[in-house]
Amino acid sequence: MNKPVKIRTTNLCFSYYNHPVLQDVTLQFFENSLTAIVGPSGVGKSTFLMTLNRLWEEIPGARMKGRIEIKFNGSFHDIYARSYSLPQLRRAVGMVFQVPNPLPMSIFKNIALPLKLAGIRDRSLISYKVEQALKRAYLWEEVKDRLTDSALKLSGGQQQRLCIARALILEPEVLLVDEPTSSLDGKAASVIEELLLSLREHCTILAVSHYWDQVKRIADVVVELSNSHHQSNIYHHQKPQPV
């Protein structure tokens, strides 16, 4: 791999209510590549993603030790440093959840929510950004005539793309994706896969996946977490080259 490193974790340990989930995880992730994180269920894959945007801090009983650095503007920053702004981190590190989680408001308002949270008020800028985000998430053509409809009326696949669009609107440099296709049918899943491949150009993607065939199709690098004897073992795989 000759791409520069974007994220590095050092001796990461994690537990829920004193029950260890991750032990001593030291990893590197590369810029503009898609890394698939695989492993048996309960091994801490989703938890690992949440350490990168510090979302686990909102979950009761969780504890973390170790160091995580992400490269922003050319230099590495310790994202757990006291001085580091949490909202700013979460704007730069987007996340898409396993089950699509649109809020019960219109499609437009859903996509525009991160801008609202960031304090942007310029109506025309918001409209422009919403359109761009929807286009990047391959959703614009399907919803452009019904932006004021409730987002809950969309199909599962559309909802997931809406959530991706919502995560993309702040132009994050890192995108965390937690089993994005597990609740979708095959056709909707392949649209999402194609979408993720296209997003690689703009950001570093970390995707948790259960399906080996999916991993083979989309991943540049594969990291396998396994949990033998409470030790998180990591295996690196280069993507199998198509013959």
């Binding site: 945007n53 979302l55 909102e58 949490l86 909202p87 700013q88 981190l89 979460r90 704007r91 987007g94 996340m95 959840f97 989680n101 809020l103 929510l113 991160p114 949270l117 960031a118 919502r166 995560a167 702040l170």
Partner: peptide, 10 residues
């Protein structure tokens, strides 16, 4: 609960 927080909300 996590939706807005993951999007950079306080």
């Amino acid at each position: 609960r996590l939706t807005a927080l993951a999007l950079g909300g306080t």
